[in-house]
């Protein structure tokens, strides 16, 4: 894939403000102030980038993600996907071909009675010829390592396998970008780690743009760029090394600081020479051993 420096960003979010419509119920009388879920957001994501959208509950990260494939439309400002304005309803089909999304609960997006049928569904709806569907399904199942399960009904799969199946269904459509909206939050730590590794692999191997929406610092480590949100605003951006360098700030943002990172901070304060580049457990261990 030829990447041009001056090529427009795949996702271009310009001064977006969004407020959820308020339902008139009893409870709302208590909440006198309703803040917009997104406030004047500017964010550009290039094709082939791996971005983590990080923040605690209710910071607006999922709302922003839903603007990236026209599930939500901005109240103010504009969102362009590969140059297409999301306000243009006629472009929504195309936009969603460019940007696929997976959610917390894979069961919400699995529909067919067999794994391979589920992956084929999106292609069939779009009217692809059968040989091509077969080829793409095989390719997608292979990319997420569940080819051996293709004849099973989805309910026989484990949570992690079902989440992989949801990803395969998106991959078969050959999107430019996958948005994972807290896709690991229903998974156990073991499967969660596997999913993070899968995203990195898809990014490296296929040059896919990945946007990982998460509240976990350890998941953001794999990204090239971390974008932190708080109260509907983007408040910080940087490489994982830059972001992880200021742990106090992360703590203020109510993020859960993983123990190894806490240890690194203590050690650094005590004069151990540990660089900002150490992010994974192996890297941290190596630097501690050499410090």
């Amino acid at each position: 894939m030829a990447k041009d420096v001056i090529s427009p960003p795949l996702i271009d979010i310009q001064q977006v403000t969004y407020k959820y419509p308020v339902k008139r119920t009893m409870q709302d009388h208590n909440q006198l102030v309703t803040e917009p879920a997104l406030q004047n957001i500017n964010l550009q994501i290039q094709s082939g980038e791996y971005v983590a959208l990080l923040g605690h509950n209710g910071c607006g990260k999922s709302t922003l993600a839903r603007h990236c494939n026209a599930l939500l439309l901005p109240d103010e400002g504009n969102v362009y996907i590969a140059g297409m304005d999301t306000r243009d309803v006629t472009k929504h089909g195309m936009i969603r071909e460019y940007v696929g999304m997976i959610f917390q609960n894979p069961d919400n997006q699995l529909i067919a009675t067999l794994v391979e049928d589920d992956v084929a569904w999106g292609l069939a709806v779009k009217g692809y010829p059968l040989p091509q569907i077969r080829e793409r399904v095989a390719e997608a199942l292979d990319a997420v390592n569940i080819s051996h399960l293709r004849q099973l009904p989805p309910y026989k799969l484990s949570g992690g396998q079902r989440q992989r199946l949801a990803i395969a269904g998106i991959l078969a459509l050959r999107p430019q970008c996958i948005i994972a909206d807290e896709a690991s939050s229903m998974l156990d730590p073991f499967t969660r780690q596997e999913l993070s590794e899968l995203f990195s692999r898809l990014h490296r191997k296929f040059g896919l743009t990945i946007i990982q929406v998460t509240h976990l610092l350890e998941e953001a480590v794999y990204a090239q760029r971390i974008v932190i949100m708080e109260r509907g605003r983007v408040i910080q951006e940087g490489t994982p090394a830059q972001i992880f360098a200021d742990v106090e700030r992360l703590q203020e943002l109510k993020l859960i600081i993983p123990d190894p990172l806490k240890l690194v901070v203590y050690l650094r304060d005590a004069g151990f020479a540990i660089s900002n580049q150490a992010l994974t457990i192996e890297e941290i261990a190596q630097e501690i051993a050499n410090a």
Binding site: E218, L263, A285, A289
Partner: peptide, 12 residues
């Protein structure tokens, strides 16, 4: 994570 780090340190 902390136990994984401790194991890594032992390997080092």
């Amino acid at each position: 994570p902390l136990y994984k780090l401790l194991e890594s340190l032992r390997q080092q």
